[in-house]
Amino acid sequence: MVWLDYPKAAVMPRILRRSLCRTLLRERVFGGNKERPADWFRSDHPAWSAWSQHATRRSEIERRTRDPRFAPLHVIRFDSPRQADTWFRAL
Rank of each mutant, 00 (worst) to 15 (best):
I15E: 01
V29S: 00
W3E: 01
S19Q: 06
T86V: 13
D44A: 11
R57K: 13
V11K: 13
F30W: 12
V11F: 09
P68Y: 12
K8N: 01
E35Y: 10
K34D: 05
W51D: 09
L4P: 06
C21G: 14
S43T: 14
P46E: 02
R64N: 10
M1D: 14
F70R: 09
M1A: 15
A38I: 08
R42Q: 01
R82V: 00
E60G: 11
L91W: 06
L4D: 00
A84F: 01
E35K: 05
Q53H: 10
R14M: 13
W3S: 13
T65G: 00
R66G: 12
R89G: 05
V2A: 14
H45T: 06
R14T: 12
S80Q: 07
E35Q: 07
W87E: 02
R14G: 13
P37E: 06
L24W: 09
P13T: 09
L91R: 09
T56N: 10
D5S: 13
P68I: 04
L16K: 10
V75K: 00
S19T: 02
A38D: 11
R64D: 09
V75I: 13
R17D: 14
Q53Y: 12
A10S: 15
R17Y: 11
R26F: 08
R42F: 05
K8H: 08
L16N: 07
D39S: 09
A50R: 07
R63H: 12
G32R: 04
F30Y: 08
F41R: 12
A38M: 11
G31C: 12
R36Y: 07
F70K: 05
R63K: 15
L24E: 03
A84G: 00
R18Q: 10
R82C: 02
G32I: 03
W51G: 10
S59H: 10
C21R: 15
R26P: 09
F78L: 12
I76H: 13
S52L: 01
W48I: 14
S19W: 10
M1G: 08
R14S: 14
T23S: 04
I15T: 15
F88K: 00
T65P: 03
W48G: 12
R28M: 05
W40R: 12
A38Y: 13
R17V: 08
M12Y: 04
